[in-house]
Design a protein around this nucleic acid. Structure first.
Lengths: 354, 354
DNA sequence: CTGAAAGCGCTTACAG
DNA sequence: CTGAAAGCGCTTACAG
């Protein structure tokens, strides 16, 4: 059923039916009621294509996720939807495969002009440094309100778009400080490489780890920074397991604690430690990052930094909507402090370490 | 830029530009090349609203997920996208909140007629029995190709739509047989209630559990079937933890093994057992269901039934596409056997049980 | 091979 | 308050 048929049934013009359906002024109370009733009775649903073809300022947001979304991103997506819905905006998720030409797809979405704004959720591009990637450069040329959510560029170089994320650096710092306060000196970091990771969450967490150690006068041992065995799937349980196993196979390193680049990596690392006969936390303490629900139920319960997802979603919506209202608005980099969640996976250093 | 501008630039008619862009016959090789080049140069992107307003047979599939999607559903979604893409179909995900009027939203999506077919992924409706819910009845009146994926109706009553899922019943049977073969007699089941669950995955797994016990001459003790403490979020770690804890607090029950309705529930149950001083598997064996990646890395490694996700996605696409080709095609109920994954969470029964 | 025209289902000035 | 008409950007018979 089209609006034309609906109008015919009610004996009114199409324009009147449209006004009634869209809750617009300029229709008498009774005419509106009659039309709405007929619409409900006949199950009339406006054709959204025709609608968006006419509508100029589309109150819609496109959320773009690249690759397989993690549990965390799904939770953020949920919250983003709620935030935007509260402001009267629709949210549409577009899923961009990692392999395909990402920039082209994004450009297409933006150029189509169906959306009032775009949220990039999670990583984007090919994992290059956020501020200097080819994609970022291309995006800078596209004139549309956009924001990066849970992706940040700690390097602080000029950054063409707004972003919102947990303060990964401060989190890495805090986790490490917890461990040094307990007396740990030989602390390993798994899931990140020191090279080519600028702008990545793990790289910022690693930077926090380095700073914390240095501020305590502990020199960072390169042998304790464990490169990812599966660089294509950094934040996965598999990567945590394989990386830690490869590291342990290289011989005794005397670490008394291990910080994982995220909770999932921590789970994999815990398994690798277990298989090597190293008990958590008796022989080696373990820290995660993200605050996933599941970490709270593991045995031992995982110590971690919880990402403030609600605040991240709220800030993302706030900044993007403000940018839509005022495109000339300066960009904003929002970093929100995470909350430390103590766990059973951490204790004082064992004299005979890993 | 619109197709009109593109046509103007190339000095051709709009219809010619359209034909060139859509790879249609009836354009000279050189004209086509010229138009495509101009399109690429100016970054012309067709307006999809205008396009879908004209197109009759929309080669697009709507995937509807209700509530917060689990890890498992996300994986299936991924695979579905690939399957449909291979057949030249676009996939659009619509996320329906649990609270809101689900039937109305679904009806709206279907009635809009933008999609060639609809996949319901995961649970739908208010958790009522699949075959007899109000929603199913309403959907039966909507004339569009649809299929239910990972949702099934084991009851075998006449079912108005096609569905594809793992064989939950056979899986429940297999898990239980493994335990009885090891000598277990007092086996509990957590995460499902015996009432009002017809059509739910956990109910089918529970049915398999019952049958397996009965076939061994072991009577099912109602005290060993643990009702969910959080019925609103059945397949969650939280529910596994809370349900098991509530059950353990009711006193000694002599169970030597516990089957969880899914892997997530198993993780929560493991935590509750641990807090009660019950060791897995020494004091109590534990079985999951689904075969999530993480279960493979837990300590102890979780024994489970792996859902054949690729096969489920492939069958879903196959049946739905066949239904689109031939709407008169009879509905089909596909049940795919899961694969048992042994784990360290299961052993022979301990004499002094829970 | 190419073009002019109709029309998909809507919304929105513009008249009355 | 209501209606007739233009037009959003595209595709597709229909002529040439």
């Amino acid at each position: 059923m089209t609006i034309k048929e609906l109008a015919h049934i009610c004996g009114v013009a199409v324009s009147t039916a449209s006004r009634a359906m869209n809750d617009r002024t300029g229709v008498s109370q009774e005419t509106r009621a009659r039309i709405l009733e007929a619409a409900a009775q006949h199950g009339y649903v406006p054709n959204s294509s025709a609608r968006s073809l006419k509508i100029t300022s589309t109150r819609a947001i496109s959320v773009i996720i690249q690759g397989e979304p993690s549990r965390l991103l799904i939770n953020v997506l949920q919250l983003l939807e709620e935030e935007f819905a509260a402001a009267g905006f629709t949210t549409t998720l577009t899923h961009v495969p990692v392999r395909r030409a990402h920039a082209a797809t994004v450009e297409r979405i933006v150029r189509e002009g169906k959306f009032g704004g775009v949220v990039f959720l999670g990583r984007y591009g090919d994992g290059e440094p956020a501020g200097s990637s080819e994609l970022t450069r291309q995006l800078a040329e596209i004139d549309a309100p956009m924001i990066f959510c849970t992706t940040s560029d700690y390097s602080g170089t000029s950054y063409p778009h707004s972003s919102v994320s947990v303060d990964d650096y401060a989190g890495g710092l805090e986790l490490t400080n917890h461990l040094t306060a307990l007396g740990h000196r030989r602390i390993a970091f798994v899931g990140g490489d020191s090279e080519q990771g600028r702008g990545h969450a793990w790289a910022l967490r690693l930077a926090g780890y380095r700073s914390a150690l240095e501020s305590k006068g502990i020199s960072v041992d390169p042998g304790l920074v464990i490169a990812p065995s599966l660089p294509a799937q950094l934040y996965t349980v598999e990567n945590g397991y394989e990386s830690t196993r490869a590291w342990l196979s290289r011989g005794r390193v005397d670490a008394t604690a291990l910080i994982a680049s995220c909770d999932a990596v921590a789970v994999g690392a815990a398994r690798a430690l277990h298989e090597a006969g190293i008990a958590v936390p008796a022989d080696c303490s373990l820290m995660g990052f993200d605050g996933l629900d599941i970490g709270h139920y593991l045995v031992p319960r995982l110590a971690t930094i919880a990402q403030p997802l609600s605040e991240i979603a709220a800030a993302t919506a706030r900044v993007l909507l403000a940018t839509i209202d005022d495109p000339a608005r300066p960009t904003e980099q929002v970093r929100i402090r995470g909350r430390f969640l103590p766990g059973e996976s951490v204790t004082k250093p064992h004299p005979a370490a890993v």
